[in-house]
Write a protein that binds this DNA or RNA. Sequence first.
DNA 1: TATTGTTATACTCTATAACTATA
DNA 2: TATAGTTATAGAGTATAACAATA
Lengths: 152, 152
Amino acid sequence: MRFRLGEYVPYLLSRAGVSLATNVSRELDAFGVSLPMWRVMAALLDEGEQRLGDLARLTAIELSTLSRIAAAMEARNLVTRRRSGQDARAVIIALTPEGRAKTESIVPRAMDWESMAVAGMTEDEVRVLKGLLQRLYGNVAGPEPLPGPERD
Amino acid sequence: MRFRLGEYVPYLLSRAGVSLATNVSRELDAFGVSLPMWRVMAALLDEGEQRLGDLARLTAIELSTLSRIAAAMEARNLVTRRRSGQDARAVIIALTPEGRAKTESIVPRAMDWESMAVAGMTEDEVRVLKGLLQRLYGNVAGPEPLPGPERD
DNA sequence: TATTGTTATACTCTATAACTATA
DNA sequence: TATAGTTATAGAGTATAACAATA
């Protein structure tokens, strides 16, 4: 059984993701935010204010890393951090007006990055790609480490 | 225009890639190799010995990082480094017999990781996913930074 | 001069664990 | 006791640039 790198899904996924992330990071320099910061901003713009832990899951950023990123973003007036009223242990992260404005200024470029990534694909192919990536994530996400090759 | 995180390809790609990579890294601990090392080993197993620069492109690992990884792998007898005969500037990286044996011992588990990632997908869907990821990579790879939203 | 790698630096993210505050 | 975050530390990858050897 030969191992075919060019047909191996984890490789194809990683390679595409790394290359796209590298390009996007470079573009984000012009906006003065890092890629993880942009992910946080995009998540907050779409989903509204979030508990830090939920934001970590949403962005796939490790919690302690996100804690520091959130602190840096607060220092730059992009987000606020406040204790939850319901659960005083939880911290709610929310976009400031400045953060929202900056995020909205990036969104049009972000759409360009997506267009570039899927250039040459039909709308239907893009839809299929999104669906498959969502399903793949569902298979590999979650607290369970790695159940096994089949999940049924 | 609302920004839909759950429909945004770069996000879906990153989220899936990060989650899968985290799982795979954890599994690779048992083999005593890091994820970047496994990528290098898999590339060498499939494509044969490579110049360092080609290996960097193949694995999407930054060149200076790969240089250090290759040194570490050489120290562990997984690969050899030798100067190319045709171009004495170039360094050829090749699997040692031990490196090859270790790589081949990982391959079956690697196939499991892929199976887990695509669980629930038909063979046809997997084929489509691979094709789309390859095309996406083609759109975002290359020396050109970011040409624009359309490439025609 | 340009290219291939190596090395060094500064920065960032991850993994882990210890710790605080709250539930 | 368990959970939500914070903080500290060690390890590793990235970006960048300076450098050596070769083309």
